Computed example of a mutant assay.
Amino acid sequence: MVKSTLQFDNMNSVVAQKTDFLVIENLTKAYPTPDGGEFVVLDGIDLTLKEDEFVALLGHSGCGKSTLLKMVAGLEQPTSGLITLEGKAVRKPGADRMMVFQHYGLLPWLTVRENIRLAVDEVLDGLSHKEKTQIVTEHLAMVNLTAAANKYPDEISGGMKQRVGIARALALRPKMLLMDEPFGALDALTRGKLQKQVLNIWENHRQTVMMVTHDVDEALYMSDRIVMMTNGPHAKIGEILEVPFAHPRDRQQIRNSPEYYELRNHALNFLDHYFSTDD
């Protein structure tokens, strides 16, 4: 793994001062093959995330980004290696880590409010009815869905459905938010608006985030660091790119800076020059 040597005068040092939160050590993931061998997806992954850090996983399809995210979530187990969250080994899913998927996963027979409330009832069962109602109401407002609270999923747009998924995840008060290409199924205009909204929420309600993306501009706009993966099989972390722009961020402002295009070109050159784009 290579850490980018790009340096900028306005580098934000806040993240570096925080303590280790999530630690991934020498992680390997392999699947058995019909001939008795194994197909190694990820090989020797070492990565540490700080508390409240926003990290993007960037790479071509098939490089194991989503597999790594699922192992952090506890949905899959590593073949070898260790993942720890605040010093405790990750062995299974838990309410301290919530995932937002590309496809929304809403129950069509429940309203927007009811989809969020169902998750709150399941995880935060120790709270009173009034407290649960308040949490749901607050998170509907957080993603600007108060007016759509009593609509059903087939009555709202794709962008609104994704906001329901994000509100549902955040309402459970996780320590870590895991997002697997959360904007990938949206049109360009909706995607840009939702990126801004999610970033605004994170800037005002900090928590550790790991997000899978194929989009260099998305990674630069939203994250503190970009973890760039080599192609699979035997995918590794090829380079980690530090993103120097302070929060809160203004998309137009950072795009007008020379640092933005230097970082963007560096990431694109990494993906294009060193590794095949074949899936």
Rank of each mutant, 00 (worst) to 15 (best):
V2P: 01
T5D: 15
T5Y: 12
T5N: 15
T5S: 14
Q7I: 08
Q7C: 13
Q7S: 15
F8E: 08
N10K: 14
M11T: 13
N12K: 01
N12A: 12
K18S: 13
T19R: 14
T19I: 02
L22V: 12
L22N: 00
V23L: 07
L27F: 09
K29A: 10
K29H: 14
A30Q: 12
Y31G: 04
P32E: 09
T33M: 10
D35R: 09
G36M: 07
I45F: 08
D46R: 13
K50D: 01
K50Q: 11
E51S: 11
D52E: 13
D52M: 00
E53D: 05
E53K: 07
V55E: 12
V55F: 03
L58A: 06
L58H: 03
G64P: 05
K65V: 00
T67H: 00
L69S: 07
E76K: 02
P78H: 07
P78R: 06
P78A: 05
P78M: 01
E86T: 10
G87I: 01
K88R: 15
K88G: 05
K92W: 00
M99A: 08
L107G: 05
L110A: 02
L110R: 15
T111K: 11
R117E: 14
A119N: 08
V120L: 06
V120M: 01
V120H: 06
D121K: 10
D121E: 13
E122W: 07
V123E: 08
D125I: 02
L127A: 07
H129A: 14
H129N: 13
K132R: 15
T133I: 02
Q134H: 04
T137F: 04
H139M: 13
H139I: 03
L140Y: 07
M142R: 15
N144R: 15
T146I: 11
K151P: 01
Y152H: 13
G158N: 04
G159T: 07
K161H: 08
K161R: 15
R163L: 02
A167M: 01
A169L: 07
A171N: 09
M179P: 04
D180K: 09
G184L: 06
A188H: 04
K193W: 09
K196V: 05
V198C: 03
E203K: 09
E203F: 08
R206D: 05
R206G: 04
Q207G: 01
V209W: 10
M210Y: 07
V212N: 03
V212T: 00
H214L: 03
L220Y: 02
S223D: 06
S223H: 09
S223Y: 10
T230P: 00
A235G: 12
A235Q: 12
E242M: 10
V243A: 05
V243H: 02
F245G: 10
A246K: 15
A246V: 10
H247V: 04
H247L: 06
P248Y: 00
R251W: 11
Q252R: 13
Q252W: 13
R255W: 04
S257E: 11
Y261R: 09
L263Q: 04
N265D: 14
N265H: 15
H266Q: 02
A267C: 12
L268C: 03
H273S: 14
Y274P: 00
D279R: 15
D279M: 13
